[in-house]
Structure formats: C-alpha cells, structure tokens
Amino acid sequence: MKLNNIYLEKVIIEALEEDIGFGDLTTDYLIPSTHRSSGKIIVKEDGVVAGVGVARSVFEAVNSKIEFKAMVRDGDQVRAGDVIIKITGPTAGILKGERTALNFMQRLSGIATKTCRLVTKVKDFPVRVVDTRKTTPTLRQLEKYAVRVGGGYNHRFGLYDAVMVKDNHIKAAGGIKKAVTTLRRNIPHTTKIEVEVTTLTEVEEALEAGADIIMLDNMDIETMAEAVKQIEGKALVEASGGIDENTIIEVARTGVDVISVGALTHQIESLDISLNLDSD
C-alpha cells in the first residue's frame, strides 16, 4: 500500500499548524536562525518501525534545508537503543518538527508492532489478519498503512468502498434476505456483499440470500467452528469481535478465511521513540 501524497501533505500541514500555531515561543526567541545541529532519532524499545517517510516529510515541510538520513525502512524489526534516523540542519527547524514527526512515528510503529505480533501467531494458518474502521479520525489512511507495514491486510477504507450489512441495517431493512435482495438490485455488479451474523440461523439466512462474505460476529469458538462447516466454502468467512493475542490462534484453527481486529488501530501502545541532539 502506498500513501496518497496529497493526503499526506494535508495531514502533515494540519498537524504542524496545530502544534506550531503562530510560532514556537521557546525556539524563536532562544535559538538563532543560523544555528545548526545534528541529532539522532532512537527507538527505546523493541518493535517494528513505521512512518519513516512521514517523519521525513514533516521535517521537509518545516525546513527544506534539514538533511534526513534513514537507517531503517518501514517494516524493519528494531531493538531498543537502535539509531533509526540521523538528522542535520537548522536547529530551529529540527526542534519545531520534532514532536510532530515523533508523534506520527510512535503511533504508526505501535500499530505495526501490534499487527506483527498477531500475524506471527497465526503464520502457520491460511488466514488473513485485517484491520477495521476503528481508526483515529482523519488518520485512517496512515493507520491502515501501518497495519500493512506490520504484515496485516486492510478491510474496507470507508462506507464508500464495500458493502457490509450489519445488525442495524438488518433491523431497518426487515431481515437479511430483504437487505441482500435490495442491495443486489441497486449496487454495481462488481461489488460483493458482506453480511454480519451472530447465530447459526443467521448464517443459514445469509447463505440462502447469497452473501459473498459472512462475518461471524462475537461467536464462541465452538459455534464459529460449526459455522465454518455450515458455510462449507460457499462464502468467504470472516471472524470478528474481541479477538486478541490470547484467542487468535483458536480462532484461526476454526478454518475462517479472515480475522478482523479493531484493536490493531484503536487499542495500541505507541512505540517509544525519541530525538536527541548531539552535544557541541
């Protein structure tokens, strides 16, 4: 997955405007514009790096004279203490871009690290670990990019690029069959339909309606395994709902095709990363 440059530029400018505002009161009145420094961005715990290019773009936006040398690439495994970036240039620019660059890298690396842990646990199963729409508003593309960096896959990006019939849609439409029938009549012929189910009865209804993908939502392992047998390859099977590092292997063993985990993007710990200027 490649980040959209227009989107990235907009997000970075908004983040810098949020932080710098009318100016950096500390740096602007303390550091001469001619002052130059060198520094290192260091990772302080083990993990997977993501957002190197984003950090580069942040510093370029602040001051194009800043020299940015990446020692790693997105997706690389790093150890605590590793120097991942070397930076040289106008001190004021480095200081103004520091927090924004680190905020992006820390969060994206945290997502990539968590994703990698889950993907590694089920590497011996023919299953994909995917994200959800539970992302930080305006940062969805970046966070889904970090999932890919960590070895995971992306679910739909928004309401606009896939059909997913959830419980409230079913209630409003008057049932699974009515919902699927109406959608088939109105959506493009190239679009697949996913239906969320919670019981084996609803699994049968989704199959009879001709759903292309059936999401097993918050099912226990036994029911999930039975649902997979019931579907018998007639539709793609997705498992979702409260799946974590402790349960993901059991879920994979049921034979589902896809495991979606909202926690990849909304319950993560940022990776600890810092920037240290070299001493004169």
Rank of each mutant, 00 (worst) to 15 (best):
Lys2Val: 01
Ile6Asp: 15
Leu8Asn: 02
Val11Cys: 08
Ile12Pro: 10
Ala15Asn: 15
Glu17Cys: 03
Glu18Gln: 13
Asp19His: 04
Asp24His: 04
Tyr29Ala: 12
Leu30Ala: 14
Pro32Thr: 05
Thr34His: 11
Arg36Ile: 11
Arg36Tyr: 11
Ser38Asp: 06
Ile42Glu: 02
Lys44Val: 08
Val52Leu: 13
Gly53Asn: 15
Val54Leu: 05
Val54Met: 10
Ala55Trp: 02
Lys65Ile: 00
Lys65Phe: 01
Phe68Glu: 07
Met71Ala: 12
Arg73Pro: 00
Arg73Cys: 11
Asp74Leu: 03
Asp76Ser: 09
Gly81Trp: 10
Ile84Met: 07
Gly89Arg: 09
Pro90Ser: 01
Pro90Cys: 10
Ile94Val: 12
Ile94His: 01
Gly97Thr: 02
Leu102Arg: 11
Leu102Glu: 11
Leu102Trp: 14
Gln106Leu: 00
Gly110Glu: 08
Ala112Trp: 05
Lys114Thr: 06
Arg117Asp: 11
Lys121Gly: 12
Phe125Gln: 14
Val127Ala: 15
Asp131Tyr: 13
Thr132Asn: 14
Arg133His: 08
Lys134Phe: 07
Thr135Glu: 09
Gln141His: 04
Glu143Cys: 06
Gly150Cys: 13
Tyr153Val: 01
Leu159Tyr: 07
Tyr160Ser: 03
Ala162Val: 02
Met164Arg: 09
Val165His: 04
Asp167Ala: 12
His169Leu: 02
Ala173Asn: 07
Gly175Ser: 05
Ala179Ile: 05
Val180Gln: 12
Val180Ile: 13
Thr181Gly: 11
Asn186Cys: 08
His189Gly: 08
Thr191Leu: 15
Lys192Trp: 09
Ile193Pro: 03
Glu204Ala: 04
Glu204Trp: 14
Ala209Lys: 05
Asp212Pro: 09
Leu216Pro: 05
Leu216Arg: 00
Leu216His: 10
Asn218Phe: 01
Asp220Cys: 04
Glu222Ser: 10
Glu222Leu: 01
Thr223His: 10
Glu226Trp: 00
Glu226Ile: 01
Lys229Thr: 07
Gln230Asp: 01
Ile231His: 03
Lys234Gln: 15
Ala239Trp: 01
Ala239Val: 02
Gly242Tyr: 03
Asp244Lys: 12
Asn246Phe: 02
Glu250Trp: 03
Val258Met: 14
Thr265Lys: 04
Asp272Ser: 09
Ser274Met: 00
Asp278Val: 04
Asp278Glu: 13
